[in-house]
Amino acid sequence: MAQLHRVRLTVNGREYEREVEPRMTLVDFLRHELGLTGTHVGCEHGVCGACTIIKNGQAVRACLMLAVQADGAELRTVEGLAGADGLHPVQQAFIEKHGLQCGFCTPGFLMSTVELLEGTTSPGEEQIREAIGGNICRCTGYQSILESVELAAQKMRAGQGS
């Protein structure tokens, strides 16, 4: 077995430290080492987007990165979205607009959407398509996902106003 490496990082504001083999991908690290199974493993070669998380403020694929590459990083996963006062507006919008059916791709869509809407709460349709274009959904046909993102943007605008 290859030499173990120490990985220290924060996920959703909490610090973690583990010793791992260099070949462990970040998504396996989240799920198997930290027990954070909200991030899903789909294609394992970067095509489907199910494993999308936010690393240092940007949406990235957790399957296309080694855990050792994320040493020192600040990560956000789907587990960090809901707060004490309930679901995140993006989660709420996906429920209201039927932005999911089986739910397998949903964590990835949510994280891509959160990154987009934290940058702007008034995205154009092109911008929305660009932000979620790397995520694949086999159930919804995407239309309801687009509507979910638009509703989420509305909710976040309203939240800023209050």
């Binding site: 970067g46 999308t52 690393k55 940007q58 949406a59 990235v60 296309l64 891509s112 790397g134």
Partner: peptide, 9 residues
């Protein structure tokens, strides 16, 4: 080139 998360990393 690819998608935004690919370009980010």
């Amino acid at each position: 080139i690819g998608h935004l998360p690919i370009r980010a990393h």
